[in-house]
Design a protein around this nucleic acid. Structure first.
Lengths: 187, 187
DNA sequence: CTAATCCCGACCAGAAAGGTCGGATATAGC
DNA sequence: GCTATATCCGACCTTTCTGGTCGGGATTAG
């Protein structure tokens, strides 16, 4: 995906940004870059919270992401009411609410759409279509359980849980990580 | 895409699968048809458990799925040791272990690969690549939590939970379907 | 021998992912 | 008013993956 700029100056293309992996979660149940970049965008906005709008150019530089692509994501987030935009010079985006009021489930839904591991198990009733096999389908409960597990995990975290910058450690492993319990098994 | 199955015998299917939807979970974190079809395949094998090998042609007919495609899935399941194949006439596939011994996490992994909502949060250590941003990445814990929620849900179900055929109901509209949430959230 | 069946690599069309581009519009500061 | 900085937004593009199909080979029961 190393965007061949139209010019394409012959062979001089070395490795360049080789290593942006093609698909970011390559196995089952993966998020797309929309989800990844969008969350990182939101985290940056969280760090800037209270200091007026931050421009996408700024954030793109901080996170090393393509600015033009962030625009798409930002618009989705804006339409969902999660961020507020200010146009013109010194404009940019800022969070619509404090980070602790923004559930990660909202963020993901704004970026990627309803959480639906299978079409018969969408959390958006508008969007869920009953499968024709409903009458003899015993499999559905599996997808519903997976969906509920995912939404539970996303619902249980807010942007505030992700915003803290990892400091140059005076003390590592401070328990300031509020509510996080068990579950994580940091690998 | 909606593979005009050469012989779709019945016209009696009114609305139904007019269009096999292009992607089966269209929002965030969706499984592919590999996961869907593969699980249905396994369920059928579970129903045939103990009665010798069942051919793919048979199962393809029962589940109305393309036989040639099922072959691919079956080979993955075989390589993972979940099913055993018998070649030649009257051959087919059968489960390698009783349904209650087969965790759905194994099935999904065999079909779709490691569970990795994001590349830095794969459950296959072989496959997880630390992101370059690791040092200042606070986002990782989100993906890890989601991953653990998913694996937890899949680990908690076995094939035996899906095999039972839904009987012709004595009581209609039992609250079985929609009301089984709760369940998860165990964080 | 034959029919059924798994095995398996090659191939393919279409859709989605992951962006880029260029212009329109809005605003702050000179 | 002019300019630099921004968002807004539709059009477009390339690569990758999905969701299969096809055809032949190897195996085995009858």
């Amino acid at each position: 995906m190393q965007h061949a700029r139209p010019s394409r100056p012959e062979v001089t293309r070395i490795i360049t940004l080789s290593t942006r992996p093609a698909f970011h979660g390559s196995g089952a149940v993966s998020f797309s870059t929309k989800g990844e970049y969008g969350v990182r965008l939101m985290v940056q906005l969280g760090r800037h919270f209270g200091t007026g709008p931050a421009s996408l150019a700024e954030i793109a530089a901080e996170e090393d992401l393509p600015r033009a692509y962030l625009e798409q994501l930002a618009m989705g987030l804006r339409d969902a009411g999660l961020v507020v935009s200010t146009r013109g010079a010194h404009g940019g985006y800022e969070l619509g609410r404090p980070p602790s009021d923004i559930r990660m489930s909202e963020v993901i839904r704004a970026l990627e759409g309803p959480i639906a591991p299978m079409i018969c198990a969408s959390d958006d009733p508008e969007h869920a279509t009953l499968c024709d096999r409903a009458s003899n389908c015993t499999v559905n409960i599996l997808w519903v359980r997976v969906r509920d597990a995912i939404t539970g995990a996303l619902e249980g975290m807010t942007l505030a849980d992700l915003v803290p910058l990892r400091l140059p450690p005076m003390n590592l492993e401070t328990p300031t990580n509020k509510t996080l319990q068990g579950a994580v098994t940091r690998s």
